[in-house]
Amino acid sequence: MSDTTSTAGPSAASPSAAPAGAGPAQASAERAVAELDSTIAGIEHRLAAWAADAGAALAAMSGKVTGTAVDKLIRPVVEDLVQLPDGYAAGAGFIANAGLLGPERSYIAWWQGPDLEPVDALANFSPNSISRYVKAEWFRIPVETGQAHVTGPYVDFLCSDEYVLTFTHPVFTHPDGPVAGIVGIDVTVQRLERGAMPALRRIGDRATLVNADGRAVASAASDIDAGDLTAPDEPCRHYPVGRTFTVWSDATGL
């Protein structure tokens, strides 16, 4: 996906219906959008690069994939991600699809927080652990579609019990082979909000960052909370952000 002009959002209309007399204010808004986009697209690019590296490393293990080997491959990357100053990752990791380590077996190598607390690690002792992940949106969709996906914002019961967005990306060991697993990064809405608020306020006092369903992630309006369903209050500008998010310069709660 391209840098500041990605267009895959559901309402990827080019900035339209600009109120009369825009000019410097709109230029400032567009710079703010570019900042937000580089944050979110940055997470997406990092994840895609990680998925490619992990796939190549797993392929090089040529069928002798073990839990220990997966941990060794994944943990250093997670360490970098969660310990990055001003980074967005609250947690990150890899989950094996059935078949990589055993028929019904998954394997989770996921850590959260600066102390790298292991997530759901008891599941690795279960012979049918794949049943735990197959229904989860952040696992199921990248596995089924072979495409990157963003889940949420949602309350993450499996890891942190926090309100998060989970960015996931399929991992391939062969270009057209089955999906070997997924890599993912959890971003808390809290952290994203802190980064997004200054930009949103420059865009407008009701500017709102929403996911593909129009659900608010962060908003400059005090009557719109993260998690609320919202709609653009036309006429309003629509700016695509990352692959699937949108900023509405003027949003209203539903």
Binding site: D115, P118, A121, L122, F125, N128
Partner: peptide
């Protein structure tokens, strides 16, 4: 562990990891 048993993740007769592995897994 009790929760893992109740939700069917760990089943009767299944071997648990030893204390070193368990400690590492749960941090």
């Amino acid at each position: 562990i009790e929760q893992a048993v109740e939700t069917g993740l760990l089943t009767s007769g299944q071997r648990l990891p030893n204390e070193t592995e368990l400690a590492a897994a749960l941090g």
